[in-house]
Design a protein around this nucleic acid. Sequence first.
RNA 1: GCCGGUGUGGUGGAAUGGUAGACACAGGAGACUUAAAAUCUCCCGGUAGCGAUACUGUACAGGUUCUAGUCCGGUCACCGGCACCA
Length: 808
Amino acid sequence: MKYDFTAIEQKWQKRWQEEKPFAAVTGDTTREKFYGLIEFPYPSGQGLHVGHARPFTAMDIICRKKRMQGYNVLFPIGFDAFGLPTENYAIKNHIHPAKVTRDNIANFTKQLHMLGYSFDWDRVVDTTDLKYYKWTQWIFLQLFKHGLAYKASMPVNWCTSCKCVLANEEVVEGVCERCGSPVIRKEKSQWMLAITKYADRLIDDLDTVDYINRVKIQQRNWIGRSEGTEINFSTTAGDVMTVYTTRCDTLFGVTYMVLSPEHPYLKKWQDRIANWDEVAAYIDEAAHKSDFERSELNKDKTGVRLQGVAAINPANETEIPIFVSDYVLMGYGTGAVMGVPGHDQRDWDFATKFGLPIIEVVKGGDITKEAFALKDDTGIMVNSSFLNGLTVKEAIPAMKKWVTEQGIGHPKTNFKLRDWVFSRQRYWGEPIPLVNCPQCGWVPIDEREPPLLLPEVESYELTDDGESPLSAMTDWVNTTCPKCGGPAKRETDTMPQWAGSCWYFLRYMDPHNDNALASKEALEYWSPVDWYNGGMEHTTLHLLYSRFWHKFLYDIGAVPTPEPYAKRTSHGMILGEGGEKMSKSRGNVVNPNDIIAQYGADTMRLYIMFVGDFEKAAIWSTEAVKGSKRFLDRVWNLAESASESEDVTPANEAILHKTIKKVTEDIDELKLNTAIAAMMTAVNELSANGCSRGDMRLLLLLLSPFAPHIVEELWEMLGFAAKSGKMACQETWPVYDESKTVASTVAMAVQVNGKLKGTITMPTDSEQQAVVDAAMAVDKVRKATEGMTVVKTILVKNRLVNLIVKPQ
RNA sequence: GCCGGUGUGGUGGAAUGGUAGACACAGGAGACUUAAAAUCUCCCGGUAGCGAUACUGUACAGGUUCUAGUCCGGUCACCGGCACCA
């Protein structure tokens, strides 16, 4: 019989879905659970991409093995379906985004089935489903009620093409992450989420979870905790000006101050500033630049000195000038910095340009050439009164203590992380369930009322002033205040795409619940997610946001664990044939459907796992796919030629046990490429030795998570299915016997002075004397040791012997 | 600039400090075939040699060690992230 993959795959996919579904979770909550999670896809019009196949296949393998090992496994799938591409497509083609979403989900579903993934299809989640997003809205309302959602007028990133506010995280190199158009700054009243209130816990609790290191490091750097000091400077204007510094030890070296152009004192001091016209012009210029332009253009420092106002250095009572310069950011610290040109390179550049004095307060560098910033702990304090003679490390706490005692400052922790801009002036997103009442302010809709439906609109186009399309729907906008009953208006902004993905893994635990986001029992049993795999690109966005929401839900008692994911791994990208990113414009996108049609889904699954180290980027090669197909052909032929015996062939025992061990361990460590290589080696050996049905049985069980269709077919063909009444995927995962993985003899390397001279075959666990005797019998060893004395022998059991020799 | 990662045959990639190149792809030789495809067998880092073999080889130049692709310090290149963060 021929290996007809198309027929086989259709047969088994149908059976798994209709006749013998095996992937649904069991209600048996006494069994140990395993919750394996992949990042649910955005159902784009392009359909599934080989980039999806890599993480999906890996987690499918892990979950299929866990099921065979007896776990109660939850392996769900869903769709993150709100978002701009769908909305833009809808606008362009005049099709309702809900319809676009439905069609795309149907297409994705078909493609996912074609790859044989063992998702629990009863638990599909769609973020645009009212039954789902009413709970997204519910979580938002809880955030609002706890003061973590607030409205603020602030400069926001405004995409000139999408006509939409973007989060800082969505702006890449000054352009919109999605459409590539320039982003400018614009003042707008926005809903914000106070993620910064959780900054400390988001960092500290990383110690409690098993994430790969680079994810932890990236999150820590993104949150950017910095332990410093706030110090108050008095000014000749009478106002006290507060600065933030991590180097309070250099206070005696401060020779000027700089304010950010947005600093409120500038306007306040307008009448005192003699050169106000010049200052105002500078402020205006800065306001018209995007963040990107500001950082681009500021390689050369610019700024204006304020005439008529000065500050006093509290350490030595010296009067120092104040500047305004756009290298100081209003959004970080206090929007004001103290200038220490001797020990900060930016300050040094600035002081040199404006001819300001440079004072050395830490000895160790040459401040006439460049700033002596903190390197190692080499510097010793000078010109600093009571700090003189101390190291920098000693001086920092000493100065913190001093400013605190003097009442002019205090230690302060700052974060780079900003609060999350949560509004979008868009249609295709969750409506924000708030009402603005002229009497009562912002009021949440009544949670007991029917959920706030995203209404049908005539047009999804933005209004001319950049407001959401919803704002044009006066029937919907005009409502009554839930509190006082007076006339009020609904919020017309919607939530960003990240909202729905913040908690979807909770919904999978109990997806049809109408009374809660999930039942307490389901949450208790399934939390936390045992293993979450996803892309590195989501490390600082989705992964951080969802940890934040989850911590909040934990605080209000809605979920039982402080962290959502126990373990996080990350896959590398699949690059096109030329080693470049796959993209439509490069024309190097590989469609999994084409590979499935030509080679079958099992080959596709195997190849995408065999292509390389899972965590690293890998280059796709359609040529190399053949190798995986050939392997399956060999498995097929081997099964057909297997002898009737259901016992394991003695000659194959060692290789089979070794392979069970290797595949079992490699799957747990996500080393799927070497697991497959081990099975290839086993097949090569079994072919050479001749194999029985008993041998085949073990091999098929190991291969079952990787290439499930062909395995089920062969399982049936060899009569195992008829005998046990079970499919291979329902069988018990094979266990290896350590003693059987070891062969009776081993090949050992013989070295003389560390150089390889030959190999010898020895009984396993041979003692040193026997090994040395055998080694000395090797011609090359005898030659190399002739006339020499062996001064030392190093034996590594079952691996090598190294003879250290010296002339006699 | 800072943070993280990577550097191994023609290619993708393997190697708890212990025989570098497993397993594949491509290539070469042969078998089968009228022929091709498929399949099977063998070869396949470099230099020298008919060959046994010798030397050499994991980005570069060092160090530690009986032994280094692996550990340590330095340099270079590439990839990803952040970027005036005080």
